[in-house]
Design a protein around this nucleic acid. Structure first.
Lengths: 159, 159
DNA sequence: CAATATTACTTAGAAATCTACCTAAATGGA
DNA sequence: TCCATTTAGGTAGATTTCTAAGTAATATTG
């Protein structure tokens, strides 16, 4: 793309701690690359990426409570509320107050959402495959191991 | 978790593509862990993480145009506009229309922002160190290599 | 049993980030 | 020269995500 600026390479050193070398920067960049591609590929199905993460969990566990769902997806509960509102409006889920415990809301996929599974899971697989194109299984496993450890480390210091 | 059994078997194929195994999920999770921690650590200095990314670039190249800045930071231009507005309001930058080309706006750090460098860079280093706590240099390098390749792959299919 | 704590969900508000346009300035070809 | 194109920046509007604080239902305990 744009390699015009930067000729000598002298500036690279002065920047102690160049962003490009930092784990956070690498992760953020990769994250946005995934986001962009996912969004583009699922938009034709009328699904946003916020909905996508929830669908992926609901396809495997239907009828769970919002709290469980939040945990499975790894989102805070207000995020779940907002996602579910949009999913309800889009006809992807139905919410029902639990009879035994009226605090709880059970979340159910609609037939429409269930049908989407067969169309959307291949999209996910395809993106993953494209990302991993030239990455061997061994490399990927080490990558996974490292990124999981880093995530856990950060969560540990979360306070 | 539940990943003990099953190694190279058929389960990997038929399993409903567990999110936890997918590169996108791993990256997204790590990304949010970084975000949360950065945000917490820089908030006491009155800096948001949106401003943070721009500061890091401006500390090494002051006086560049908004477009250059967008590229360096890796953000779309409207994002840069919004970040700079908040930074101007916070007294971190000053913008000046270029005399030679009145379309261009040069972005300059204020003394306040320059002073923050000495306080904030250590924060970045510390987070990186905590993330990499139990990760060897060799592991990290492989991680970086893999995540960079994946990012590049995804960008390639971006269309 | 009433007061209190906990749990499940919700609301409010802010921030980061994108896509799609829009305006103004500079540039370049006919 | 003049009009079309390109370039720099900006607006509008949407989505995702968070923290902080609220409300209602249930559980606990003195």
């Amino acid at each position: 793309m744009t390699k015009k600026a930067m000729k000598g390479g002298d500036a690279a050193k002065t920047a102690d701690f160049a962003p490009q070398e930092s784990a956070g920067y690498l992760v953020r960049d990769a994250h946005r690359a995934f986001q962009r591609l996912i969004e583009k590929r699922i938009a034709p199905f009328g699904v946003t990426r916020g909905q996508w993460y929830f669908l992926r969990v609901l396809w495997t566990k239907d009828g769970i409570s919002q709290r469980e769902l939040s945990e499975s997806v790894g989102m805070m509960e207000p995020t779940t509320v907002i996602a579910l509102q949009s999913m309800e409006k889009a006809g992807l889920v139905r919410r029902e107050r639990s009879a035994e415990d009226k605090r709880k809301a059970q979340v159910w996929l609609t037939p429409k959402a269930k049908k989407l599974k067969a169309r959307l899971l291949p999209v996910a697989r395809h993106i993953t495959m494209q990302a991993r194109e030239d990455v061997t299984q061994a490399e990927f496993e080490l990558f996974r191991d490292v990124i999981l450890r880093m995530t856990r480390n950060l969560d540990k210091y979360r306070r």
